[in-house]
Each structure stands twice: as C-alpha cells, then as structure tokens.
Design a protein around this nucleic acid. Structure first.
Lengths: 135, 135
DNA sequence: TCTATAAGACTACATGCGTAATCCAAAAAT
DNA sequence: ATTTTTGGATTACGCATGTAGTCTTATAGA
C-alpha cells in the first residue's frame, strides 16, 4: 500500500469538493466552499497549493487556468484514517467501537435490520475461516 | 457538556498511562512510557506540563514531587473524539461506518453473536421510540 | 555545612496548520 | 498599446505540536 499524504482538516474540505466532482477550476472550488466555510478565496487557494505539494491532487492546464482533480480516493482515505483512529482510541480493536455505537447511537429499525443482515452474511461465510487474502 | 481540552496524539499516550492508574509521579509516568515510546524523560515532562496547562490533568503535592491524575475521563474523551471523527469522515452518519466495519473487519463468531444480541436488544426496545433521555 | 542531584519551570526550535496578503505575469479590457 | 484584472506563486504570521535542552531551587548525600 502506498503512502497516503496527510490531509489536514481544512484541506479535507477541499478534497470533499473535488471528490464529489472533478476536475474543477480553483474558482469553482472556491465557490463550492463559499457560504459553507467562510474562507477567503486566498485561503482556499493556499489549501489547494498545499494539496498539490502533498500530491493529494494534481491539475491539467486549461488555457489560462488549472483544472484540479484528486490523486487519492476518498475510500482509501477513509479507510486509512479510520484505521489510525481506531488504533489511537480503541487500541485497534474494532469490537469495542462497534459495541459502543450499536449501544449509543439512534438507529432506525431499517438500519438495524440491515446491520443484522450483514452480520448474518458474515456468519454464513464461516466466521473463523482463513480470510487473509479476501481483499 | 463542558469543553474538553484538546489532547494531542503524544499527550494522549500520557493520558492513557494516567487513566490506567493514578495518581502517579512524573517518574512513574516516564517509566511507564519507556521502551514503549522512545521519548526522553524531558519530553514526557513537557507533555505533562502541557496537559496541566490544558487542565486535562492536575496534581497533588507529595513532599518533593507531584502526583498527577486525570481531570477528564477516558470515556468522555473517546466519546467526543469519536463524534468529531465521525462527523469529519462519515458526515456524522454512523451507519456507513458500522456497515464499513462489519463488512471489512475480521470478527470471530463470538463477536458476531454478541453484536447481534445487542441489535436484538435495540429492536425490542422499540427502534423509533423517543430515547432522548436514556443516557 | 557545602555540594551534587534531580523535579519541575522555563526556553528552544523546526514543522504543520489556519488564515490570509502580496507579488508577478499573462490575459482582458479600454 | 497601455492599463487593469486576475490566476497562480510566494511570503507571512501566530499557535500547536514533537522533541527536547537549560535554569533554578530545594532536598539528599558527603
């Protein structure tokens, strides 16, 4: 697995914009964030520059301006971040977190059904079979 | 809910030590982290000082030295951090995270059973009842 | 009693981050 | 052709963080 660049919280907002649609010009990104983040345009451009340096995004030139697009997938990111989050707070153990959430969170009956269904699938699959290679 | 001080990653390691046992002297904390974190003693003391400033911990004087203890509970912390993590990565929606984990993670059959049991409890409880006051 | 030690206080310094402003060159407007 | 505008590049600056080192003062040892 390649090294994913560290994306800060503010940078993350920019990434989200580019993940939902890309490529986009700087101005488009700025507009998309407007009203939502209360950042000056220059601030957004700074974030874009930093994401470029980190190789989290890239651009194609389109005449006088650039069209930016992500180089890392949101999925990879969420995956990695979640992993390190878990490690930090729950010592890497997933179950305590799951228990915590299943207990604490409001879930609709539909959601509960869906979760149960997923658990059922896992049961059938054979819970203790060697699944090392399955992803 | 009171404002929890922000605890950095390095500081978190110190907190973990104090959460598992307290109060402890600086040296005890330093020893506890030794071999585990590869920090110079002074580094640990800096972290302790910062945690003091942030009111994350406090101390009682014990003769020539201090006995440190946490002022915030690990539970509160994990709770808050998890909340903001979720908001950041999953837009606050718990279900996608649960789905993600139930799918991706290795869980033993025992664990699966336990999770199902918890879901069953929630079902009985009446999924859409107003549970605002239940914690 | 004088001195060495060591705990805690204070200082240090590079890097990352949030939050921009200024500079520069090319395109657009006049 | 000259001026204005505007994207993008560069620079700014304070605070947090990781990672310590130095200073000070009160005990513990000689």
């Amino acid at each position: 697995m390649k090294e994913l660049p560290k994306i800060s919280e503010a940078e993350w907002e920019v990434m989200k914009i580019l993940w939902t649609r890309s490529p986009q010009t700087g101005n488009e990104v700025i507009e998309a964030l407007e009203g939502q983040m209360d950042w000056k345009p220059k601030t957004v451009r700074t974030l874009i520059s930093r994401l470029l340096q980190k190789n989290a995004i890239a651009f194609q030139e389109a005449g006088r301006t650039y069209l930016y697009y992500p180089l890392v997938s949101q999925d990879d990111y969420v995956q990695t971040e979640t992993q390190s989050f878990l490690k930090r707070l729950y010592g890497g153990a997933v179950k305590p977190l799951l228990v915590h959430f299943l207990r604490e969170q409001k879930l609709s009956s539909d959601e509960i059904s869906e979760l149960k269904r997923i658990l059922d699938e896992k049961t059938e699959e054979g819970p203790d079979r060697d699944r090392r290679k399955d992803r």
